[in-house]
């Protein structure tokens, strides 16, 4: 399979969000150091989970969340506390 890298920021720029000041998903990042193979990195369709090599820690960005819920099922260490955003906040699909 060819290595075609999607430009996720470009894709997400076509999605409407009403961003809450409060994160709806929280990650217990202290667990991530031990974690292999860190399935959240490849699983999230919005690439909200990335690994910061310099700081050697997980970066999580709730603002671009598509609210699919995939991450809540993939974490082997139960580090992801998943919930929907508060009512009225979050993704607003126009062509869902």
């Amino acid at each position: 399979m060819a290595d075609r890298k999607p430009d996720i920021d470009e894709k997400l720029s076509h999605v409407a969000f009403d961003i809450d000041a409060e994160a709806h998903i929280t990650v217990k990042k202290e667990r991530c150091g031990e974690c292999r193979p860190r399935p959240c990195l490849s699983a999230c369709p919005a690439e909200n989970y990335t690994w910061n090599e310099a700081k050697d820690e997980l970066l999580f960005n709730y603002e671009g969340c598509l609210e699919c819920g995939t991450c809540r099922f993939v974490c082997p260490l139960d580090a992801i506390e998943w919930s929907y955003p508060r009512g009225g906040f979050g993704v607003r699909y126009r062509y869902g």
Partner: peptide, 8 residues
């Protein structure tokens, strides 16, 4: 591209 979406 008009919209990008994901759902289970």
């Amino acid at each position: 591209l008009r919209e990008y979406e994901a759902h289970i």
